[in-house]
Design a protein around this nucleic acid. Structure first.
Lengths: 341, 341
DNA sequence: CTGAAAGCGCTAACAA
DNA sequence: TTGTTAGCGCTTTCAG
């Protein structure tokens, strides 16, 4: 009644177990006659190779883990989907791990999985560099939307993207911008801020950063108030979730978007064009990021050829203009008490 | 340089391998002195039990798979999150599988995983009953938002929910409703339609079903046109994604929501209250569905006690009233060329 | 309570 | 091309 093993198949087919094994793992090393016979017998018996036994020997599993910092952020959908599709194409299984914005959970989960998966995909990891290096020493690893020298990564080109945003705002007549920052341990948040700052300086705009804010719609209220308090006419929010919350709060406070204040987000999540006003945001081919990262990972996991280079892929972004940004019309003078950036 | 094994630990601790093994798997059968000593030595060596070897013996793996019919549907976020949190609490790993609305992919993926996971969670499975039964014969399985006699399941109570929807529409003065159906192989779609139909009949409303439609925003256009063509004043869409698309198209065609046409969705996804008009929809504690289902699954996976009953849990829904529904004011006579439902 | 030893199902030398 | 034979790392009788 138990599942049939190679022994059962070998016996029924009148061959050695190794032949059965080869028929499945290295078909080229068995005569086609024998192979077909073995496979036929196996099929008849309902034999399926036991993945645990296989993994015990090879140490490999055909399984990779993808860690996302917050699974409820729609931004990750496409990333996950791209990675998942690519994995499936190579018959790899994807284990999904949710870090809930906690570096601690992220680290623990990874360590728990380190000996049961072949590699890791870390999306917007919140872990400090040292941890990443340590993990990379244990298993192949590819970063998504985070860069670290020496480690393979795939990121959307936010430097260029931020430049586009600032260009856009400048051409609308804005003289200043306020960045509502993401989590302190987010590499992306830091990258965006420095890119915005650089672009602003170059174009002669003022720029200040407020926050950090947890990138959720619910945090948008506080973020919007802070921005208003700082006298912002142009707001760049860490991501669309936060931006959406900001717009909501602004509207609630009778501040018109974009007439009084322009708002830009990042990610182009699917709600961005459903909201009113629809959100101007920096998008990109997120699914491609997932796909590319998985590709690199599989390449270093599979023994086809060893890659000692750490490819750092940069994918293009695209500024999606919608209705949350517009020209500066009148001066909003909603200034209040001082507040440091 | 290789990972330390029980042999290394046994040697370093001056005990037998079996003692090391016991110290980890059945601590109660080792004197506390020995146990602590072994654990200390193990920790020092950086020993971690090899999950593959462990799985080879026990056949179990501390891993369960969750299959969703479409991972890009935000509705699943909370479901996944609930399941994932519950799994983590019991130190189980969650493998996420995306079926992309294809029963074929769903089935293949499950069969591929059947010998490497301890059980399955199937969310809104598109598989025919026979397949579900067959899978259930292979591994413990819990259905989410789908019911099948003899199999454990957790579903939101859509019968009551649909009744609430129809009540709501009736009390706004609507005399008819149009249901924009989900996929043909969706149990939920069938359930909703028959519940709507029953409630409508009881309240003396007319009801017709149009479709099926793939539940995506992009399908909303066609769905809206079909509904308009059928002279609808009240539309109940299979889910929020479709409903959002419908509203978008309606607005585009200058049909006012809710003045001319009311629209109701299902799921209460996060975009539902960001859209304009915000969407009236049937919500529920999705995370609880995930949690409850995982709970049942772990119960039947772990050898604590055998459950031969198949619990069928029904969780309450909640009608979230927003701005996409309103009283019937004037008759819309936007009829066009004939179109069959 | 602890140790010795036999596998779990499969793969990978090594021979033939 | 195929068979023989050790293990992979761990658990689990069975003794002691």
């Amino acid at each position: 009644m138990a599942d049939p093993t190679i022994y059962d198949v070998a016996e029924a087919a009148g061959v050695a177990t190794s032949t059965v094994s080869r028929a499945f793992s290295t078909p080229s090393r068995v005569s086609s006659r024998t192979r077909e016979h073995v496979l036929a017998v196996a099929a008849e018996l309902g034999y399926r190779p036991n993945p645990h036994a296989r993994a015990l020997l090879s140490g490999r599993n055909h399984t990779v883990a993808m860690v996302v910092s917050d699974i409820t952020n729609p931004h990750y959908f496409e990333l996950i989907r791209g990675a998942e599709m690519r994995a499936r194409a190579s018959e790899y299984t994807l284990v999904l791990v949710n870090a809930e914005e906690s570096p601690r959970i992220e680290y623990d989960q990874i360590q728990r999985l380190v000996s049961s998966v072949d590699g890791f995909l870390l999306a917007a990891s919140r872990l400090p560099d040292e941890n990443l290096e340590q993990i990379a020493a244990q298993r192949p690893l590819v970063l998504m939307n985070r860069e670290l020298a020496g480690l393979p990564s795939v990121v959307l080109d936010h430097v260029t993207g931020c430049r586009q945003i600032v260009d856009h705002l400048a051409s609308l007549g804005h003289r200043d911008l306020v960045y509502l920052a993401g989590p302190r341990n987010s590499w992306m948040a830091a990258t965006r801020w420095s890119a915005l700052q650089a672009a602003a300086e170059e174009l002669g705009l003022g720029a200040q950063s407020l926050g950090p804010f947890t990138p959720r719609v619910s945090q948008g209220g506080a973020a919007a108030d802070a921005a208003l308090n700082a006298g912002a006419t142009a707001i760049v929010a860490h991501n669309d979730l936060l931006a959406l919350g900001v717009v909501q709060r602004l509207t609630q406070r009778s501040v018109r978007v974009p007439e009084d204040v322009s708002v830009v987000g990042f990610d182009d999540i699917f709600a961005a064009d459903l909201a009113t006003p629809s959100l101007t945001t920096l998008g990109g081919a997120h699914a491609d990021v997932g796909r590319a990262a998985m590709e690199i990972l599989l390449d270093s996991v599979a023994p086809i050829r060893s890659k000692d280079a750490a490819p750092q892929v940069l994918l293009p972004t695209e500024l999606v203009l919608r209705s949350s940004t517009g020209p500066v019309a009148s001066q909003v003078s909603d200034g209040g008490t001082a507040r440091s950036g």
